[in-house]
Design a protein around this nucleic acid. Structure first.
Lengths: 147, 147
DNA sequence: GCCATATAGTTGTTTATGCAACTACTTAAA
DNA sequence: TTTAAGTAGTTGCATAAACAACTATATGGC
């Protein structure tokens, strides 16, 4: 039961997402330098809307692994920035469908270039095989804890 | 230059620390269930103090990958909870040395058991070799972005 | 139609992060 | 010894997260 797969001293680094926060910070910096005034969290919501406009807030929760209040407030802020609009669902008035504005559509290409650039910097000297392996293991970790 | 090691659709999961946040949430839940009223962030500071009392705030910044204001406020909150005490350095009065209280010392074993338990759950079905490989790759990613 | 239950979203509170600007203290050079 | 530059820590502000409690709408059994 107590057979651990890690050395005690390294326990901490596994719990904190050192690498992912470093990536997020780098990407945020690139946004700032490019004069793009959105946060990474806002970007992560737009990212899913670019894949398909008109998602409900609940769908955004699932897609971004956030809870409902977090999405409510992210959508609030994106609305203030005129990047998205809430539109009540025709048939079910509980549901808000979230649509991108022109301004948000214009951000897609620019930010995706910066995101790819960031990942290429992050993954310099890491083979594609290693990347796949890491992703697969991290997914397994996530699945282990989602029960 | 533009050779990417990832598929576009999977870009997002690499930027958000899905796995690490899932681990942190699970550990927090265990703390709550055990009646331990500290946050994971507070725990991460204590974690480094357990390895050696009397660190300066700057040392805690380096150890926990946080900036100075974050540590100031975490130490504020830990002080309110009577878990640490700031003690001015003898020779250099700019420096606060942070010391654990008895109450914090008592938390070490209990929380470490829960942390190991959490990691064992997270890493179920992951071989030690895979864990080492992941840690090594994530460290390389971190190093790539620390320049 | 009426009520219980479930679902979608919002609000309040506490804690944490990032950045910039600040104070206090130290050190080293003129 | 005075001053300039650097280091340690704090404060203000905006954004975000987690949790609980809430409103509003929908649905299914009676």
């Amino acid at each position: 039961m107590a057979v651990t797969h890690f050395k005690k001293g390294e326990l901490y680094s596994f719990i904190t997402g050192k690498a992912s926060t470093a990536i997020a910070r780098r990407l945020q910096k690139k946004f700032n330098e490019a004069g793009i005034t959105i946060t990474i969290e806002q970007w992560s919501v737009l990212y899913h809307l670019w894949k398909g406009d008109g998602a409900s807030q609940q769908e955004l929760c699932n897609a971004t692994f956030r809870d409902k209040p977090s999405i409510t407030r992210l959508v609030d802020n994106l609305e203030k920035l005129d990047l998205v609009k809430r539109v009540a669902h025709d048939k079910d008035r509980r549901i808000n469908k979230i649509f991108l504005t022109k301004a948000a559509q214009a951000l897609e290409e620019q930010t995706m270039v910066l995101a790819e650039e960031t990942l290429n910097e992050a993954l310099a000297g890491v083979s594609q095989q290693e990347v796949e392996m890491c992703k697969e293991v991290l997914q397994r970790v996530y699945d282990n804890l989602s029960g």
